[in-house]
């Protein structure tokens, strides 16, 4: 008896549609966000994460309508990220029905935003998303990871472990950790990265990037010690259902909500 490890389908949304990027370049249409949310809810998803990857700020309100519509039909936690720059953005998303708001680039540009948002709305609804890229493990040196921003285009020089700890101390209630090296490869999470961050912070860590099969999900928990695992394409295109993922994880001895 205890807390279940969570399976979180992730929906990248642009112009009101769910898309799946392949290395941030070609985007494949994966369907209507409300419809997809309902399907994952029926399948037993533990949470849903929406990342608004809309380029233009004019279209930002679209995500609010989507969140509103989903929140009226789906009664599980919703996390929304993308384009969150100020406390007012956090408030708008929470008011639309988000339970947690994910902050990525803006946390690097203005760490005080994380502190202010957590102070105002509580650490439980502030997720800091970290895009990590492996550096300096050539020639047998221990691996290091650097924080990238702007959808992975901009290096920051920040060390991922130190950054995760700093975000926790400022009030992040959860870390959404994406390996840029693994993302889109379908070869599994960067388990060393996941484990290093999970062991370094006291808040829950969501592993993301690289899931290609159900074994990868289980590895994220068993080896990476993630509290939750996030995946997109294996669910979007009907390869696996959430039930199949949970049944597999349960077989591996992982406590899940069935």
């Amino acid at each position: 008896m205890g807390l279940a490890k969570r399976i979180i389908p992730c929906l990248d949304v642009t112009n009101g549609r769910v898309v799946k990027g392949v290395n941030f370049t070609e985007l494949r249409d994966a369907g209507d966000p409300v419809e997809i949310s309902r399907r994952y809810d029926e399948q037993g998803a533990d949470e849903l994460t929406f990342l608004d990857i809309t380029a233009s700020s004019d279209d930002r309100d679209l995500i609010l309508h989507i969140v509103e519509e989903v929140a009226a039909q789906v009664f599980i936690p919703l996390t929304v990220g993308g384009g969150v720059r100020q406390v007012a953005d956090v408030r708008r998303l929470l008011n639309a029905g988000a339970d947690k708001v994910s902050i990525n680039t803006s946390a690097v540009q203005n760490p005080q935003l994380v502190a202010d948002a957590a102070e105002r709305y509580g650490a439980q609804c502030i997720v800091v998303a970290i895009d990590a890229k492996r550096v300096g493990d050539i020639g047998g040196a221990p691996p290091r990871w650097e924080v990238f921003t702007h959808g992975g285009r901009k290096a920051t020089g920040l060390d991922v472990i130190a950054w995760a700890r700093k975000m926790q101390s400022l009030g992040a209630g959860e870390i959404l950790l994406t390996s840029m090296d693994s993302d889109g490869t379908r070869l599994g999470f960067d388990l060393a990265l996941t484990r290093a961050v999970a062991d370094a912070v006291d808040v829950p860590v969501i592993a993301s990037g690289g899931v290609g099969n159900l074994q990868h999900l289980a590895e994220g928990v068993l080896q990476g010690r993630a509290d939750a695992v996030l995946a997109a394409s294996i669910f979007h295109y009907g390869e696996y259902t959430i039930q199949q993922a949970k049944a597999y994880m349960a077989q591996q001895g992982i406590e899940v909500r069935l």
Partner: peptide, 8 residues
């Protein structure tokens, strides 16, 4: 982990 977050 604290917060205690998820399905119990």
């Amino acid at each position: 982990k604290v917060p205690h977050m998820g399905w119990n």
